[in-house]
């Protein structure tokens, strides 16, 4: 594998977006790009990552390779990333380490790190990425982040309901309750503020607040978030990158006992 990002912060943002959700991950590299999925220890949150060749300045993968890494270690190395440096990932044919080369030609500087790869045996879940959903919402990731931060302070359960009137996020705590209603809007001046809902039926789902606080860490990937809900199934929260690919989170709902 030899894969070069023209801006090293792209890879840093991707890794930082889920390094607190899961501890380790297998990146599966092929000529169609880098794909990964990892499930958290509690088996409630699944992260999917897709970095297609279009995200790279140059991308070459001669034979399919799996790269297992501890995310905390990789994240440490990526602290060196900045918008002036490129980053090339190299893995040899017999992979036991990942080489990261940061280059800043303007400053006549280069940095090289090596990360030992780990053999990860993890269960993979068969997730249908074309999964049909009853409700799809596209909204500002900034708005979503603020709503999650504000409401999750009040309760460890977070409810999402969607009707033809809009999307309602609500929490019911012991001493306080809160509700945020967002209705579809079209902001011609700033398209990232748009909110659109397409639905075939209403939904009403509850999730554990702590996972939503993990998910919003990925908001730096995109100024938009796509939400997909169906009754009584995991929800998908997806951040798509400008150049293709992105990071998605499948989150299992809570149910009333």
């Amino acid at each position: 594998l030899e894969a070069k990002f023209d801006d090293s912060t792209i890879f840093k943002k991707i890794i930082d977006s889920f390094k607190d959700s899961v501890t380790q991950i297998n990146f599966v590299c092929s000529e169609s790009g880098i794909e990964a999925q990892a499930i958290d220890d509690s088996r409630v949150l699944l992260v999917t990552v897709s970095i297609p060749p279009s995200c790279f300045e140059s991308y070459r993968c001669d034979r399919p390779t799996t790269i297992g890494v501890y995310l905390a270690s990789l994240a440490k190395l990526l602290k060196s990333a900045n918008t002036n440096s490129s980053l090339t990932l190299y893995v040899a044919d017999k992979p036991d380490e990942l080489l990261l080369l940061f280059e800043e030609p303007k400053n006549q500087k280069s940095m090289e790190y090596k990360l030992k790869l780990v053999d990860i045996t993890a269960d993979m879940l068969e997730v249908d990425s074309d999964m049909k959903s009853d409700v799809t919402v596209e909204m500002s990731s900034v708005e979503f982040t603020k709503t999650v931060r504000d409401l999750t302070q009040l309760s460890d359960s977070f409810t999402v309901s969607v009707t033809k009137d809009g999307i309602v996020f609500s929490v019911q705590g012991d001493t306080a309750q809160g509700k945020v209603l967002l209705q579809p809007r079209e902001d011609l001046a700033d398209e990232s503020n748009n909110l659109s809902i397409s639905m075939s039926k209403t939904i009403d789902l509850s999730f554990a607040s702590k996972y939503l606080l993990d998910i919003i860490k990925a908001a730096s990937i995109s100024n938009k978030i796509f939400l997909k809900f169906s009754d009584d199934t995991p929800a998908l929260f997806e951040f798509k990158m400008e150049k293709g690919g992105g990071v998605g989170f499948y989150l299992a709902p809570k149910y009333d006992d």
Binding site: L45, D123, L125, S206, A208, Y250, A252, K254, Y255, D257
Partner: peptide
């Protein structure tokens, strides 16, 4: 009282 469901209740493990 609400209970947390698991992803493995919904998706088959490979």
């Amino acid at each position: 009282k609400s209970k947390q469901r698991k992803l493995t209740d919904f998706f088959p493990v490979d």
